[in-house]
């Protein structure tokens, strides 16, 4: 990987992390959901700073260039985060259903109490 590409990668990552940080601070996203993004960015910065190690790993797993390997890593990270979001959405779906049922039952009870 060229020095220029390394520097580009690092700058983009730092900008991204600052963006995530400000969003958390403004309480627009919960820290819990920001953590995977922080982790991914930190890892990418570490990768950019250790080109020799990256080259060895790339050779070992038969990927032609380091940039290709990093590209693969980003795709993998995105898959993991998207999947975990699917799990979160499903979980929230169940919780909303529970709430709706509970409110329905409570409403019925309140109405019945009023009539009595």
């Amino acid at each position: 990987m060229t020095l220029k590409l390394t520097i580009e990668l690092i700058i983009c990552n730092i900008l991204f992390m600052v963006f995530v940080y400000t969003t958390v601070r403004k309480k627009k996203i919960l820290l819990k959901y920001a953590l995977p993004w922080f982790a991914a960015s930190t890892l990418l910065i570490v990768f950019s700073l250790t080109p020799n190690l990256m080259k060895k790993i790339a050779n070992f797993v038969d990927i032609e260039t380091v940039s290709n390997m990093i590209f693969l890593f980003v795709v993998g990270m995105n898959l993991i985060i998207t999947f975990s979001l699917t799990a979160t959405v499903s979980n929230q779906n169940t919780k909303i259903a529970t709430l709706v049922k509970e409110i329905g039952i409570l409403k019925e009870k309140v109405n019945r109490d009023k009539k009595d």
């Binding site: 940080y21 958390v24 601070r25 820290l31 819990k32 953590l35 922080f38």
Partner: peptide, 14 residues
């Protein structure tokens, strides 16, 4: 530990 430390730091920079 990671989450609590980060949130302490973020809250304290506020």
């Amino acid at each position: 530990m990671i989450k609590v430390s980060l949130s302490i730091i973020i809250t304290s920079i506020d």
